[in-house]
């Protein structure tokens, strides 16, 4: 199945893109998807590693959420608005 993955700020600069299409196996959960995306983009792993936050369809993910075809994923660093 296919999902969209969005990057913002520091992660967008590390990847060199703001949005990609990514393939995942059926029934992949948030934790597994995060690992696969970090494997695909070594800069993310190298620069940010475990500090990255992960969202599915504009909601923070905790790890065991099942991802569906067409979902909007996002990977970003700890937020710094204000």
């Amino acid at each position: 199945m296919k999902v969209r993955v969005l990057f913002f700020g520091a992660t967008a600069e590390a990847v060199g893109k703001r949005e990609i299409e990514f393939s995942l196996a059926e029934n992949t959960n948030a934790s597994e998807a995060r690992t696969e995306i970090l494997e695909a983009f070594p800069n993310l792993k190298k620069y940010f590693g475990k500090s990255l936050l992960f969202a599915i369809n504009q909601e923070y993910a905790s790890g065991d959420e099942i991802i569906n075809n067409g979902d909007e994923l996002a990977i970003f660093t700890a937020v710094s608005g204000g």
Binding site: S31, K50, S51, L53, Y60, G63, A78, V79, S80, G81
Partner: peptide, 13 residues
């Protein structure tokens, strides 16, 4: 530099 804030507590490890 992109500023990194406090880490959000409940997220994927």
């Amino acid at each position: 530099v992109w500023i990194e804030g406090e880490n959000h507590g409940a997220n994927v490890n």
